[in-house]
Amino acid sequence: MDQLASASALIDKCRPERPVRGLRPHAAGRAARWFLDKFPGDVAYAYKANSSVFLIGALYGAGIRHFDVASLPEIEDAATIPDAHLHFMHPVKSRHAIRRAYDLGVRSFSLDGEDELDKIMEATGGARDLLLWVRVAVTAINSRIPLERKFGAHGEKAAKLLIKTRQVAAELGLTFHVGSQTTTPDAFVTALGEVHRIIVKSGVMIDRLDIGGGFPARYPDSDPAPLQDFMDVILANIETMPVKENIKLMCEPGRALVAEAESLIVRVDARRGSNLYINDGSYGMLFDAAHLGFIFPTRLISRSVDASDPLVPFELWGPTCDSIDHMKGPFLLPDSVREGDYIEIGNMGAYARAIAGRFNGYGEYDEVILLDPPVLSMYGAENTQVAAARG
């Protein structure tokens, strides 16, 4: 794979027909080192966020050895990583997936109901070497994608489930998730308060506490609190836990580790007023922009523009024949942008690759490794939206 100084260098070299994924493994490595340095426990990468071998390699090189996996294909892929510790954290699994995971060496499973606990014990033949995590539901506060409606036990039910799980688990863990792209640390204050109450109500000792993911990335329409604020709040509240002396911690960052590590390079195939028709869209890597309203940083990379060229808002339309292939934005670009220009859409390393499909015959990408900084960063102040837009 080519390594280039920047997305602009790619366009100087060639004018690609297909959209291009621009990988920045160094950004993933930097994020991983930050978490490993700041978090006093296991950092388990949420594999579903991005399974690119280049980014997984960068995370591994930085020291990541724990992985949150949510499906059998993810487990079979991640099981090839040397010294990997896999945690099957999907609360609802098929018996086949549990059995196969156990055969591949997985001993860590989550659950949020007695039926799932029974299923795990039956599928593993009553194994006594399991780390079992009871997932509790917590309130989503300032999260872009709340997750508490689908999974998690509440209150008295959670306490009873902890008691029953304690009877069969070699190690007992408690886990929760505050929701994806949580922008303020008070979500963890509320969640850890609920965890505290459930532990006291159950009267059991837990061995592990997994605070889940939800750590944010930076986007033009989302400027979250610094990650250090999250760590300060989390650690201060864990200090109040009744089991703080013996508990082992884990977190599951996904977006925060890889969002900055991949961008999308697209071509403008038509301009109609403030609408740009590009060669990737909602059925490709821009699902979150179309269906969840994410606004990603954009910059023109195919030519220089005059400083007097104003930045104006654009809507984006993808290449398929479907009218919902639409990303409302607004995406800020120079007013002079025109057909044949190339745009870099930054901070797309989280989930975009995983969601992209092949509808209407599209969905083929080239890839390059880029050596420059991410378009926007949670880990440094070298970028601004204006600089990002102008390239």
Rank of each mutant, 00 (worst) to 15 (best):
E194Q: 10
V243Y: 14
G214H: 09
G173W: 07
V268Y: 11
K248Q: 13
M231L: 06
P226E: 13
M241S: 12
M205W: 08
A270Q: 14
A270R: 15
I211K: 01
P185S: 10
E171K: 12
V268L: 10
M241F: 12
E239M: 07
S263G: 11
R208H: 13
P242S: 06
R271W: 11
T183W: 08
G213N: 04
G214S: 05
F230S: 00
K201D: 11
I198P: 10
K248F: 03
L172D: 01
I247M: 06
N246W: 13
G179R: 04
Q228R: 12
A170W: 13
D210N: 15
R197G: 08
V266E: 09
L257D: 11
A256N: 05
L257N: 09
M241K: 12
D210L: 04
G173P: 07
Q181V: 10
A170S: 12
Q228H: 13
A191S: 15
F230Q: 02
I198N: 12
F188W: 15
G213A: 01
D229E: 13
T182Y: 00
G179P: 04
S202V: 08
E262P: 02
R218H: 04
E260F: 12
T190P: 04
L227F: 02
A259G: 03
V189R: 12
P242E: 03
G254T: 10
T240N: 13
E252S: 14
V233M: 08
A236S: 14
M250G: 01
V189T: 12
P253I: 07
P220G: 06
P216Q: 11
S180Y: 09
N237G: 00
V178N: 01
G193Q: 08
G193L: 00
D207A: 00
T184D: 01
A256C: 02
H196M: 03
L257E: 12
I247T: 07
S263T: 06
A261W: 15
L257Q: 09
A191Q: 12
A261Q: 11
A170H: 15
L172N: 02
T184H: 07
D207N: 10
R267I: 07
K248M: 04
T190H: 15
D186I: 15
L249I: 03
V233Q: 00
N246C: 09
L249W: 03
R208P: 04
A236Q: 14
G179E: 04
S263E: 06
R166N: 06
L235D: 05
G213H: 05
I265Q: 06
P216I: 11
L235K: 15
T182K: 01
D223S: 09
A191H: 11
V168H: 04
L209M: 08
Q181P: 07
D232P: 03
C251F: 12
T184G: 00
D223G: 02
L257R: 12
D207Y: 05
F176Y: 11
